[in-house]
Amino acid sequence: MDSRLGSVAVEIIVNGEKRAAVAEPRMLLSDFLRHGLGLTGTHVGCEQGVCGACTVLIDGQPARSCLTFAVQVEGAQVETVEGMAKAGELSDIQQAYRSAHGLQCGFCTPGFLASTQALLQENPDPTDEQIREYLSGNVCRCTGYQGIVAAVRSAADARKASSHGS
């Protein structure tokens, strides 16, 4: 991308793959992912750190890619929505969102998926109140959150059931 303030090479590990591109120091991680690396699954909703659409996992922690400079994550592990489905198969969380009608337009969805993944890693058996509290940093304008909370609940329940079964 054309630059005014000089550029640096940034190398990050995205979805397990080492990727490098040139970025201005002021370039946001969201723009670096989307336009530098072509990973357009991460969406930008406000660039103010409020809506949560751009949420990705940085070293396993959910973070706003619109409030993070690309140069800050040099060498870090970044997980985006593109890494969730394996070999064309939706992950259990993605499938739960589909089954529970947890998305409509799909624009906020990648951010919700990232937050859900982090929530279930931290707390595999959250209450509905804990789900709502954890996801309160992501906004969805379409669903009224009914399908989203149900999706997270069912993904957690399914994981619990399968771990009891094994």
């Binding site: 989307r34 699954g41 930008v44 985006t80 939706l90 589909r98 998305l103 799909g106 624009f107 969805t109």
Partner: peptide, 20 residues
């Protein structure tokens, strides 16, 4: 019934105007 449009949207493969 599962929605036809969901797999691409869930996988980050939707195409929105800023993806063009």
């Amino acid at each position: 019934m599962q929605r036809v449009e969901d797999p691409r949207l869930l996988a980050g493969r939707g195409r929105f105007v800023d993806d063009v």
